[in-house]
Each structure stands twice: as C-alpha cells, then as structure tokens.
Nucleic acid binder design. Structure first.
Length: 414
RNA sequence: GUGGCUGUAGCUCAGUUGGUCAGAGCACCGGUUUGUGGUACCGGGGGUCGUGGGUUCAAACCCCAUCAGCCACCCCA
C-alpha cells in the first residue's frame, strides 16, 4: 500500500456528495416504476466470458479495460465493466427467457481500467434500464423516452443533446462494414495511427475520429444510410416517428457509433459540453444479438446506461432535509431520562440527536451546527415536574412542556 | 497506453533571485458566558512543504525518479 489514499480512479463519496448520488438513483427508481421497469441486481463480478463474448474481444473494454483476476478456485473472474451483459446472463441463468417481455432497472458500481480524468473513474456508478423480448421499434421509443424523462426530472436535460443514429440490422451492418473497410483501406496510409488500428478493430469508429486528416477522409466515405436494407430503414422511421410524437428532440448523427459489438439498429447518446472530454451522460441502444452471443435463444433487447457521477456533476444539489431535534440533558441525573425520551421520540418518527458528552453549552453548539430546529432541555427543574423545556432554535423562544405532551408539541418541527 | 500542467495545514491558497519561509483565511478546539446555540472578542492544536533520491555550506524553492490529481488523445457512463 503506497499511502493512505484511495486506489487510483476510485473515491470516497461523503454525505454531502451522496445527496446528489441518492437523488439520481431515487429519481430513476421512481420513474422506472412508472414505466413498469422493476429493480433487480446482478453480482458485481462474473465469469470473464460473460463480458468478453458479447462485448467483442477487440472492443476497448475487453482488450484493455477489464479488471480481471483468477480466483482461488482458478476461475477467471471480471469486475463488471457494464451491466447489460450481466443482466442478459441473469435472464438465461434464471430461465426468464420464457417470461418475456421483461423490463428491468438496476444501478451500482462498474469497473474499467481507464486513465482517470474529470468525469471518468475506474470505479464509477451507473443506472441501467433494459427492455428484453421486445422487437418492436416502439420499445426503442419507450426506452429513449424514459431516459429523456429522467434527465428532465433531474433538471439536466436542457444541458444535453440527444444524438441518434441507426446501425441497421445485422445484415445491413455487415454489408456496410465491408464497404467501409474497402474504402478506408484505399486511404490507409493517410489515416492516423489510431484509425489504422481501428480499421481492423472497429472500422465504424473511424467515422467518429477527432483527427483532422481522418475527418477529411471520413467525409468522403460511403454513407450507412445507402446500405441499410428496407427493413432497417422502416424500423428507424418508426423510431423517429415515435420520438417526434412525444416531442423528444434529437440530432441525427450518422457518425455516432458505439464501442460494443452487440449493438444494432437504434443507438443514441445524450451528450453535454459541460464535462470536458467526457461528453456522454447517458447512452444505449438496441442489442438484438446479445443474448444469442451468450448462448441463449435469439432475443431482442434495448436499453441504456447513465453515469451517476456525471449526472451528479451536472445537477444542482437537492435541498437539505429538515434538521433534527436535539435532546439536551443538563447534569448527570438527567442522562438516563433523556436517553429514554430520545428513544420514545425516535419511535414516534422524529429525527433526534442526543449528544454523547459535553456540558449544556457544548451540546447547544453541537445542536446548532447540526442544523437542529429545536432543542429539548432536561435538567433537575424539568425532571421534578416530569416535563422538558422545548426551545425553538430559530426564534429563541422556549416553554416548559409536560413529557406526555411532547410529541404533540413537537409536531411542527417534524 | 501516449503527451502536457500541477502537488505547501481538513479546505482555498501566500511563500520574492535556494539563506528565520513554514504562513494567511476558512474550518476545528478552548475561553469570555460553571442551565442555553447562532454574532463578537481572545487564545490554541494541526504540516518531516506528495514520496524517495541527488546537487549545495544551505532546498518548499534546482535536478532525477515515483505516486496522485487535472487537461488532452484514446474510450466511454
């Protein structure tokens, strides 16, 4: 252990940050429920195959970003770099392929051995939604609408742009891929180093290159739209009609490509300019071939993932909840009584702070720092009358309240 | 994995060409007020100047390495 510091690319989430984090998850969960997406969870590690097969051996994630290790039993294990493949595996493991369609929501940590940067960590957190067993393009529309809705509810939608594209079905994608490889191979010498590597790994990515030279060459590349078969064209038309009908604005980006092999048809990404190089906030699409790649029956699927940290960075912190009520015993004799009063009030639903030590002054300071709205003072005088002094910390007014009337009198501070 | 910038108290930062340079504000703790918080005043604790080497009579300040952060590439959430 080099020092008392978190492992590179990981971080602690302290209560102040956790409020945003919580807000993202709670909002997503609430809206997902409205759309019929039920929460589930998969383990955070799987057999390496679960990811390497569907994502593609040549994908960046599999070839260089996975946290993999051999466990004590000799199994090849990988900390999940994404959720979709794991959810698909769960579908097969649990025999759920007979209960389609299914709608799932899940959230949790993901792991990728990337170089850390603003908005990019080695352990990060995502919310995910998956719609399984629906081949209809209206499924794509619902999935996108859910993402849009969540961003809207979090107050960040206006800071994003929805980019949309289609890769066509497997047949169209294969055809286009070979045309593209032919075209770029003719210009191989003029391509950037990165793009020359992409030529074999993921030629579609060259279209999305930021290199100026690549951009020029890409501009002359054959367009995907010309190589879509009729079924793919029709499919995409319905997706767009659906989005239009819902008033969901998007920008068609023919160069939008996703890094994972399993995508087909609709792909989309909500991007922002406010997170530096990490533009993508929420991204996904259709993955009709994924389940088959894992050895299951041909099963259509659509879904997306969104980065909780990235969303957190874009949104305003939710307002803090109401402060607690502080119980303040005065003198040793009042300790036990204060303890039991505290417990009674907590059982009655109040948020109560009872300090562990300190004199009256220290306890009052502490109560103030915690944002307490009221203090309940209990000393000899109060004990003698079986009562407590309730002080409103905002107005400074206080009054003697019999213990059995405490709950009633505190109602306004709840 | 590649390139660039940065690294001084919990936080935000000062620190002049290497020679009382280890500081400020905020935060924290205590006191003024031994049954009463927020304000004010007074006082206090806390840093082997990221780490390890080197140069020098002398290094927070120069050199090298390493770790970490940031920015970009790459990739994606």
């Amino acid at each position: 252990m080099p020092a008392l510091q978190p492992v590179r690319g990981t971080r602690d989430i302290l209560p102040e940050d956790m409020r945003r984090f919580r807000q993202v998850v709670d909002t997503a969960q609430d809206l997902c429920a409205r759309y019929g997406y039920r929460e589930m969870a998969t383990p955070i590690f799987e057999f390496t195959e679960v990811f390497s097969r569907p994502l593609g051996e040549t994908s960046d994630v599999v070839s260089k970003e996975m946290y993999s290790f051999t466990d004590r039993g000799g199994e090849q294990i990988t900390l999940r770099p994404e959720a979709t493949a794991a959810v698909a595996r769960a579908l097969l493991s649990q025999g759920l392929a007979h209960e389609l369609p299914l709608k799932f929501f899940c959230h949790g940590p993901m792991f990728r051995y990337d170089r850390p940067q603003k908005g990019r960590w080695r352990q990060f957190h995502q919310i995910n939604v998956e719609l399984l067993g629906v081949a209809d393009p209206l499924g794509d529309v619902e999935i996108a609408a859910l993402g849009w809705h969540i961003l809207e509810e979090l107050g960040v939608r206006a800071r994003t742009t929805m980019e949309l594209n289609t890769l066509g079905d497997a047949e169209s994608r294969q055809a286009y891929r070979s045309v593209l490889v032919d075209y770029f191979s003719d210009h191989r010498g003029k391509l950037s180093q990165d793009s020359q590597a992409r030529l074999t790994r993921n030629p579609l990515r060259i279209l999305d290159s930021k290199d100026e030279g690549d951009k020029e060459i890409a501009a002359g590349a054959p367009a995907l739209t010309a190589h879509l078969n009729q079924a793919s064209v029709d499919f995409f038309a319905i997706v767009r009609e659906g989005l239009d009908a819902l008033g969901i604005a998007y920008t068609l980006n023919p160069y939008l490509v996703r890094g994972l092999d399993y995508y087909s048809h609709t792909i989309f990404e909500f991007t922002t300019e406010d997170l530096g190089a990490q533009a993508s906030v929420l991204g996904g699409g259709r993955y009709d071939g994924l389940i088959e790649l894992l050895g299951g029956p041909a099963t259509p699927g659509v879904g997306w993932a969104a980065g909780i940290e990235r969303l957190s960075m874009l949104m305003a912190a939710p307002p803090p909840g109401p402060g607690p009520i502080a119980v303040v015993p005065v003198g040793a004799q009042a300790q036990l009584k204060a303890l039991s009063v505290t417990q009674d009030l907590r059982r009655a639903g109040f948020a109560i702070e009872l300090g562990f030590s300190g004199n009256l002054k220290k306890r009052m300071k502490r109560a103030d720092k915690l944002g307490a709205r009221a203090a309940i003072l209990m000393g000899e005088d109060e004990l003698a009358q079986n009562a407590a002094t309730v002080r409103d910390l905002e107005s400074g007014q206080q009054e003697l309240v019999p213990l059995d009337a405490l709950c009633e009198r505190l109602a306004k501070f709840r």
